[in-house]
Write a protein that binds this DNA or RNA. Structure first.
Lengths: 124, 124
DNA sequence: CTTGCCAGATTACAGGCGTACTTTTCAATG
DNA sequence: CATTGAAAAGTACGCCTGTAATCTGGCAAG
């Protein structure tokens, strides 16, 4: 509950990509990705269990882990903090910042315009 | 150099708001803001000194601290990390996320449209 | 019924962080 | 020159994190 650490989030990402996963599967995806020993992955899984961020249960022949919190919720709390701390909670300055640092691709621009149109459409 | 911690960033913010500041001034702004004892603020200042994030020097009668790194640079590394970790480096999904969570104010929308227009204008 | 495997718990340990006090070292002032 | 006052360095300490190994208890297979 009290915030997922950086390393722990790697486990979560794996589970959000594909759910459920066995311990074996988590270890074989997340381990190599991060250069972690199996024991390390198990520790992180244990901590996530204790935090209530994931749950494990045996289902049809295997033992599977599932995330208990939604990625969107996690993303929300992570990005809200940054937005508040760095940009006084305003989205536009954040985007402006990325624009200044050449992080705005043509694709982003296209998607942003579409997004804005859609929002205005809905609001109408 | 190796990343400014959350608590340390409060000191930096004070120095970015107004530079230079004396130890006294830092303590009297940052301390109450965060409920920190003077000793705590001094520790954070020391760590920032050791990290090379700020510098202290005596100038006309007082001892003043100045930031050695620009806020823009710090904001950049902070937000880049989040963008990469959470949104695969794409800005549009980030904005979409905020839109879905009602974090997009009318003001933001207006500013975003202006920003996009300006970018397209420049690119032309 | 026994044995072995695996999930979960326990233990380990160093480094960073938040919080804070104490000691040392200078520079200025009397 | 001596004292003082503040800056900087050192000490402290508990918690979280990253990294990892080991112990334990229950279920499944033989």
């Amino acid at each position: 509950m009290q915030s997922i650490s950086e390393a722990e989030s790697r486990i979560m990402e794996a589970l959000w990509r594909k759910t459920p996963l066995t311990a074996e599967q988590i270890i074989s995806t997340v381990g190599p990705e991060n250069g972690w020993a199996p024991a390390t992955v198990k520790t992180l899984v244990t901590r996530l269990l204790k935090k209530g961020a994931i749950a494990g249960a045996k289902e049809d022949g295997g033992y599977f882990y599932r995330p208990l919190i939604a990625r969107a919720d996690w993303v929300q709390s992570e990005s809200q903090g940054l937005l508040d701390r760095l940009f006084k909670g305003e989205v536009a300055p954040l985007v402006a910042h990325f624009a200044e640092h050449r992080q705005l691709s043509a694709k982003d621009l296209r998607q942003l315009k579409a997004l804005i149109s859609k929002i205005e459409e809905d609001g109408k």
